[in-house]
Simulated assay, not measured.
Amino acid sequence: MDNDKLMEFLGRFVGDVGATMAAGNVVVGEQLGLYRALAESDKPLQPADVAERTGTDARYVEEWLRGQAAGGYVEYDADAGAYSMTEEQAFVLTNPDGAVNAPGAFQLALGSLRALPRIVEAFRSGEGVGWHEHAQEVFVGCQRFFRPGYIAHLVSEWLPALDGAEAKLAAGARVADVGCGHGASSVLMADAYPASTFAGSDYHAGSIRSANSRAAEAGLSERASFTVGSAQDFTGGPYDLVTTFDCLHDMGDPLGAARHIRDSLASDGTWMVVEPFAGDSVAANLNPVGRVYYSFSTFLCVPNALSKDGGYSLGAQAGEPAIRQLVTDAGFTRFRRVAETPFNIVYEVRP
């Protein structure tokens, strides 16, 4: 045995254990306002100061701060025994509308892990675990994980990259947002394009209730409505634009969904497919982002697909060749990658 390689692997293991426990601590810090107290202070704070500002117990806060400093999530001044946050740390940990929302991602991870007994059994049986069978933290965390990327890129970059779609939206288009979840994407588009109407659909009734509530809170209910329905049977059309955000790979019958989307599009309509960033092969995905997506996919995406009829299980790292083949099999004739971020790839699909 190579002792250096052993120590290297043990170091990776220790880091992973620390990261696993850090997930819960990040959510604690957000929910109790501990990060925000540090970020809003104009000077480093003692643990007792953080506790006083947040109405929490100083001893708990002290231990929490030590762990956060060890992980690099807050800064520690050893001479003063005080803690602070950099601008970058505060941006990732306290800004729900920023480009990255770390607490939401950790909430999604913790919610996913609640299904551990079911996933272990599914490995043995080959049966699926439906999206609706997961903990509430999964639905909320998923919306919080992906929404910042949509805020940063959807209206400013992704929609303008589609051939002619933005002009249609500005003039007044009919849009179907399939697999809409809590409706973050629909609400963002409806707010940006007041002449257009948006019909969101998702098979998960709880998410649809949340989506309708969010649209109402934003004053957009007249133009953004949400109904329970699958990607294979959503109603309406013909639509000028159909969108699927980070959900095609979750479907047990994505081919059936693609065919239904094609039938629901206007002759000059567009399907915008937003999928997790992935390379064209397993080897190309052996990196930190690929690890995140493969891990989530094992607990969420593949189990949901296997719980449905259809025979597919693309997984979150399906990659461009698999998506291209799918839409081609569904009868589409035009396909191109139009945008990408570290977490997503955007495809334009035309009849």
Results as ranks from 00 to 15, higher is better:
178 V>F: 04
248 L>P: 01
286 L>C: 06
216 A>F: 01
125 S>E: 12
143 Q>T: 12
285 N>I: 03
220 L>V: 04
185 S>V: 15
263 D>S: 15
149 G>T: 02
152 A>D: 10
130 G>Y: 09
346 V>Q: 03
102 A>E: 02
318 A>K: 00
268 D>I: 08
44 P>I: 05
215 A>P: 08
163 D>G: 10
225 S>M: 10
298 T>Y: 14
82 A>C: 01
43 K>L: 08
100 V>R: 06
68 Q>E: 04
332 F>C: 11
77 D>C: 03
288 P>D: 13
124 R>F: 05
265 L>N: 09
85 M>L: 12
221 S>R: 13
180 C>V: 06
248 L>R: 07
254 P>E: 01
225 S>G: 10
305 A>T: 05
297 S>C: 02
348 E>S: 00
217 E>T: 12
163 D>Y: 07
110 L>C: 04
67 G>C: 07
36 R>Q: 15
84 S>R: 09
61 V>K: 01
82 A>F: 02
171 A>N: 03
14 V>A: 14
170 A>G: 13
307 S>M: 04
101 N>T: 00
297 S>A: 09
249 H>I: 03
172 G>L: 04
320 E>R: 11
3 N>G: 06
213 S>F: 13
325 Q>T: 14
176 A>P: 05
287 N>Y: 04
337 R>F: 06
259 R>H: 11
34 L>F: 08
204 H>I: 11
201 S>C: 12
48 A>S: 14
169 L>I: 09
21 M>F: 15
131 W>F: 15
235 T>Y: 01
269 G>Y: 13
207 S>N: 14
113 L>V: 12
77 D>M: 03
8 E>N: 09
263 D>M: 08
46 Q>W: 02
37 A>C: 07
351 P>N: 10
279 G>W: 06
326 L>N: 05
62 E>P: 02
44 P>R: 05
83 Y>R: 11
89 Q>M: 08
327 V>A: 11
181 G>D: 03
144 R>T: 02
238 P>M: 09
219 G>M: 08
190 A>F: 01
137 E>P: 01
228 V>N: 01
311 G>I: 08
89 Q>D: 02
76 Y>C: 07
346 V>P: 00
155 V>P: 12
107 Q>E: 09
59 R>E: 14
85 M>H: 11
344 N>C: 02
142 C>V: 07
172 G>W: 06
85 M>Y: 13
313 S>R: 08
178 V>S: 02
67 G>K: 12
134 H>C: 11
140 V>W: 07
252 G>C: 06
125 S>F: 07
3 N>A: 10
13 F>K: 12
138 V>A: 06
273 V>F: 01
325 Q>V: 12
23 A>N: 10
65 L>G: 04
265 L>D: 07
289 V>Q: 09
246 D>E: 15
201 S>L: 01
73 Y>S: 03
200 G>K: 09
140 V>H: 10
211 A>D: 00
105 A>L: 09
